[in-house]
Amino acid sequence: MKNIIAATLLALCSSAATAHTLWVLPSHFVLSSEDSWISVDLSAANMTFVADRGVSPNNLTIVFPDGERHAFAQSYQGKRKSQADHQLTMDGTYRIELAGPARYFTFFQQDGQRRRIAANKQERSAQLPANASEVLTTRSRSRALSFVSVNAPNQTALALSKEGLELKLLTHPADVVATEPVRWQFMLDGKPVADVQVELSREGELYRDDAGRELLSSDAQGYLTFTPQEAGRYVLEASVQLDSTDALTDRVRESLTLTFEAALP
């Protein structure tokens, strides 16, 4: 019963959080000197880059150009936004990532009510009530990303983990330029995934009558091609929900946001 109550409370918190877009926003996307400091804002918000709710920086990491992952040197959680700082001590591309482990939840009907417990398919049998029906287990995961390059960009920090929803950045983030096409590929657990739904939005939404958001989707091979029409900072939000035959889950729910900058042509 305690597990069911805890899961119900978590569901209420999660629904509030999922109504907002989670993003990480670095102070700079391209730097020309080593030993520069980078500041990163974290928030969950309805409007692009207008901070609304500070989120925990505990799962925020930075991958250096040599592939080594580090915790941020200092961080702070605020009410509207959180912030973290780190020193970039080498040339190349850094990966900023806010991501926790995958979470498994099993949903079921009991006495006419919809309930859930924190358990995967292998764990659920020991926790489900005897009269549970319509049992379904989901795997949920979200990550927010951005990339910062110092002097010469490289590829090491762009490597995929082959876990969850990811972007294969065929166009390097440091090479995104307004009015030029960008080509990326969505991967799910290391394999191309088709028909990923995407929303692309640009900074300055607060000052426009039309939010100007663009709805896109990946093709049959997972490729996403688009052309940013104006220079500035963007956030790409993607999600996928698929049935699964995995030993641990019946359904996969994944979301990803990528913050990037389109340079002047």
Results as ranks from 00 to 15, higher is better:
Asn3Gln: 11
Thr8Pro: 00
Ala11Met: 02
Leu12Trp: 01
Leu12Ala: 12
Cys13Gly: 06
Leu22Glu: 09
Leu25Cys: 04
Leu25Asn: 10
Phe29Leu: 12
Ser32Phe: 02
Trp37Asp: 10
Trp37Gln: 10
Leu42Thr: 08
Leu42Tyr: 09
Thr48Ile: 13
Thr48Gln: 08
Val50Asn: 14
Ser56Met: 10
Asn58Ser: 13
Asn59Glu: 04
Leu60His: 05
Thr61Gly: 02
Ile62Lys: 00
Val63Pro: 04
Phe64Arg: 04
Pro65Trp: 15
Gly67Thr: 08
Glu68His: 15
Glu68Ser: 15
His70Leu: 07
His70Gln: 14
Gln74Gly: 12
Ser75His: 09
Gly78Leu: 10
Ser82Met: 01
Ser82Gly: 01
Gln83Asn: 00
Asp85Glu: 15
His86Asp: 06
Gly92Lys: 09
Thr93Val: 01
Arg95Cys: 02
Arg95Thr: 00
Ile96Cys: 00
Glu97Arg: 03
Leu98Trp: 01
Tyr104Thr: 11
Phe105Ile: 03
Thr106Arg: 14
Asp111Lys: 15
Gln113Ser: 08
Arg114Leu: 13
Arg116Ala: 02
Ile117Ser: 09
Ala119Trp: 00
Ala119Ile: 03
Asn120Met: 01
Gln122Pro: 00
Gln127Gly: 03
Gln127Trp: 05
Ala130Gly: 02
Ala130His: 10
Asn131Thr: 13
Asn131Glu: 14
Glu134Arg: 15
Thr137Arg: 11
Thr137Lys: 11
Thr138Gly: 12
Ser140His: 02
Arg143Met: 06
Ala144Lys: 05
Leu145Cys: 02
Ser146Cys: 04
Ser146Thr: 04
Ala152Arg: 09
Pro153Asp: 14
Ala159Pro: 01
Leu160Trp: 13
Lys162Phe: 07
Leu167Ser: 06
Leu167Asn: 02
His172Gly: 13
Asp175Ala: 14
Asp175Trp: 15
Val176His: 05
Val177Asn: 13
Ala178Pro: 01
Thr179Leu: 03
Arg183Gly: 00
Trp184Leu: 12
Phe186Asn: 07
Leu188Phe: 07
Pro192Glu: 13
Val193Arg: 06
Asp195Trp: 00
Val196His: 02
Asp209Ala: 11
Asp210Thr: 06
Gly212Cys: 05
Arg213Thr: 08
Glu214Thr: 07
Ser217Cys: 12
Asp219Lys: 11
Thr225Ser: 13
Gln229Val: 12
Ala231Asp: 06
Gly232Ala: 14
Tyr234Trp: 05
Leu242Asp: 09
Asp250Gln: 05
Asp250Lys: 10
Leu256Arg: 02
Thr257Ser: 08
Glu261Cys: 04
Pro265Asn: 13
Pro265Met: 09
